[in-house]
């Protein structure tokens, strides 16, 4: 049996690609723009939420997972689960133990190559 490949591929309209392109640019602008406001602990969450949105657009439209309903989709999203396992089980350990495996009180001095600023002079952004 001979399947013609074009029956398997969706030719996406140019305007869809352009719309995604523009959205990605807008979201890049937004993610830079919101750094002007300090949301405290939410800075990270806002930045990650925008990044996830952008990533979703790239994966679903540019990489075609929206139309590709085969095992590829499960493979990709499934692998995120394994990354999450790694992340979360490491973080069962990290916050619950002393740094470098020793208690806070026994912290050893590290040989840091960083040259400290003279007292009282705070650095400004380099650029």
């Amino acid at each position: 049996m001979h399947d013609h490949p074009s029956s398997h591929h969706m030719i996406v309209p140019v305007k869809t690609y352009v719309a995604v392109f523009v959205s990605l640019l807008v979201l890049t602008f937004v993610t830079v723009f919101v750094t002007r406001f300090d949301f405290g602990a939410f800075n990270l969450i806002v930045a990650l939420a925008i990044a996830l949105l952008k990533a979703g657009l790239v994966v679903m439209i540019f990489m075609g997972l929206k139309w590709n309903k085969s095992f590829d989709r499960l493979a990709f999203f499934g692998s995120l689960v394994f990354l999450f396992i790694f992340f979360s089980l490491v973080f069962v350990d990290i916050p619950l133990r002393g740094y470098r495996g020793v208690e806070e009180s026994q912290q050893i001095n590290i040989k840091s190559p960083v040259k400290p600023f003279p007292k009282g002079t705070m650095p400004n952004a380099a650029h």
């Binding site: 490949p5 398997h8 590709n68 493979a75 990354l83």
Partner: peptide, 24 residues
Amino acid sequence: FASEAQEFESARLGMWIFLVQELL
């Protein structure tokens, strides 16, 4: 391969699995 479709889908799945390892 028996057909073009099989060839294409194999390549695409292979690429996605490769990207999975890149992701990790």
